[in-house]
């Protein structure tokens, strides 16, 4: 998402100063996505250049940096267009992870199962953190913040499902006889529970007596 539309949406409510825009943006998203003042002013300048916002005429106050901005007609139309259109998903999400795993399955000597499990654990920790934050939030006063947290949980959950899927797919592939052009031991990691992610609770100690 671009900052542009976020600022336009806020200005549709009422004209605001740059610093107000920044503060409003941050409170409404529970300070999840910090903006710096520079980003806000640069964006406002571009929006003004494109005819989407203009300085409101404020009697008296007339400093460059302290202008109150308001939407133009075009700006209002653009904001409405933004609300009415779904957010487009151009680049495939979770790019680094997808690339990492794509490389892991093709390179020899990488324990893909281990890479997958480490990621799953890490992402699960994030879900735990979001859940703790949600539990600490106030159901009726922190709605915006809770929505942000929900979206993070959904995204993390999707990533974990995808990791499960990757693992299942690899297990299927490993069970199938290797193609002749692959080396005899060229198959990806076996399904056998090779190395545990971390020692964790499964110690090397033999069963209890």
């Amino acid at each position: 998402m671009s900052i542009r539309h976020g600022l336009l949406a806020l200005l549709a409510e009422r004209p605001m100063y740059g610093y107000q825009l920044r503060a409003e943006f941050e409170t409404r998203t529970g300070s999840t996505w910090p903006l710096n003042v520079g980003q806000v002013y640069t964006t406002l300048q571009r929006l003004e250049r494109d005819g989407l916002v203009e300085p409101a005429d404020t009697a008296g106050t007339a400093d460059d940096q302290t202008a109150v901005y308001q939407l133009t007609e075009t700006g209002r139309a653009e904001t409405e267009k933004w609300w009415s259109a779904p957010v487009t998903r151009h680049a495939p999400a979770r790019d680094e992870l997808a690339i990492k795993l794509a490389l892991a399955v093709t390179l020899p000597g990488i324990d893909v199962q281990l890479v997958v499990q480490r990621q799953r654990t890490e992402t699960m920790r994030a879900v735990q953190q979001y859940t703790r934050l949600s539990r600490q939030a106030d159901e009726s006063n922190d709605t915006a913040w809770l929505l942000v947290l929900d979206s993070l949980v959904f995204a993390a959950e999707a990533e974990i499902r995808w990791l499960d899927h990757v693992e299942a797919r690899l297990a299927r592939t490993a069970r199938r006889p290797a193609r002749t052009d692959a080396g005899p031991s060229g198959a990806p990691a076996p399904t056998a529970p090779s190395s545990p992610g971390r020692p964790g609770a499964a110690t090397t100690e033999k069963s209890g007596r």
Binding site: T121, Q128, P193, G200
Partner: peptide, 9 residues
Amino acid sequence: RDGMVVDST
């Protein structure tokens, strides 16, 4: 996995 704890958060 396969009856063993492989990791924990």
